[in-house]
């Protein structure tokens, strides 16, 4: 039966997505490397959840593995389940998987150009989704495509529907991708760094659009990002990854104001403007670098960079307890910015 992991209360009502114990490994010339391990997360209806971490932490691999978008091999799912409205995406037969991807889940990736076909007008690309997965006829699909373009904020939508991707700006292209993702009324939208390539004013417009559509449709949103500003502004819950594992999860307020894992706290302190700067107006930084998957430490994976690490941290892998993977978590809230 479906069970939401205890550490991740679903605040949004019916769970849209429940991921339990997801593991992903890659074959490399030096053998098989476990890149993502034991990831639990859930997204409720109408809820926005962020999966955050720095490059190489496994957040994008996690998102792609859910939809089985990783090339297999070299990728392998080594364990876990990803239940979308009760169906396990990881074991669905190919045609059911295609239906789920086309209808139940929408996705938006960082680079809109790679999601669009350069040789078809954008309106046709939306209409194609509607014909294949929404059961609409040619004419109805074309009309609905124009409506969707208008809904995602593209001015003179009927004319723009005839434009090719290269004739649109980066922000407009990403709006088209969002229109395609929303075309068949998905229950879950997965957005992987959707605004990273865009300017802040365009980023703010698109995040506002995603929030509005999520509420109007009671859709779940899984936002994969490294931008803690976006997380603070736009999501309800946060799952923090480090070196292929979830190291902390909780409500957005608890993560930003009462982070318990030393990595979460270090990450927040490194963001200019998030916390009072250190001595002499300097930023806090985390010493060292994220380990590569073939060199994850045996004990706590953050241990070698952690100011609180003790002998027991190095002894054995640390498990996630009560939303935090740490033997010596912080117990006090973070100091508020002035």
């Amino acid at each position: 039966m479906t069970r939401a992991p205890a550490s991740l209360p679903v605040t949004g009502g019916v769970p849209r997505l429940v991921v339990e114990g997801l593991g992903v490994a890659f074959d490399t010339p030096r053998g098989r490397v476990q890149v993502v391990e034991g990831v639990d997360l859930s997204v409720g209806a109408g809820e926005a959840v962020a999966l955050v971490g720095e490059s190489g932490c496994g957040k994008s691999v996690t998102a792609k593995a859910l939809l089985r978008l990783l090339p297999m091999p070299p990728a392998h799912i080594t364990g876990g389940r990803a239940l979308l409205s009760g169906e396990d995406l990881l074991t669905l037969p190919p045609d059911a998987l295609r239906r789920a991807r086309g209808r139940a889940v929408g996705f938006v990736f960082q680079d809109p150009m790679s999601a669009l076909n350069p040789v078809y007008p954008v309106g046709e690309q939306i209409a194609e989704r509607l014909r294949l997965h929404g059961g609409l006829g040619r004419r109805a699909a074309r009309e609905r495509a124009a409506q969707l373009l208008e809904q995602v904020g593209i001015p003179s939508a009927t004319e723009r529907a005839r434009a090719y991707p290269h004739q649109l700006s980066g922000g407009m292209r990403q709006r088209v991708v969002i229109a395609i993702a929303l075309a068949c009324d998905p229950t879950l939208l997965i957005a992987d760094e959707p605004t990273t390539a865009l300017d802040v004013t365009i980023q703010a417009q698109l995040m506002a659009l995603l929030a509005e559509e999520r509420r109007a449709r009671d859709m779940g949103l899984l936002l994969i990002t490294h931008d803690l500003g976006l997380v603070a502004q736009w999501v309800d819950r946060v799952v923090v990854m480090y070196a292929g594992q979830v190291i902390e999860s909780g409500s957005v307020d608890s993560i930003f104001h009462h982070p318990r894992h030393p990595y979460t706290r270090g990450l927040l302190q490194a963001v200019p403007g998030a916390t009072p700067p250190g001595p002499d107006g300097r930023l806090w930084s985390i010493p060292g670098a994220v380990p590569t998957p073939d060199a994850f430490p045996a004990g706590c994976r953050f241990g070698p960079r952690c100011p609180r690490a003790q002998d027991d941290c190095r002894a054995a892998p640390v498990v996630l307890v009560d939303g935090v993977r740490c033997l010596h978590p912080h117990t006090r809230p973070i100091e508020a910015a002035p």
Partner: peptide
């Protein structure tokens, strides 16, 4: 431009 920068604090939403 300044208003569009997301503030990393959920208690100060735009």
């Amino acid at each position: 431009l300044l208003a569009a920068v997301p503030v990393p604090d959920p208690r100060r939403r735009a």
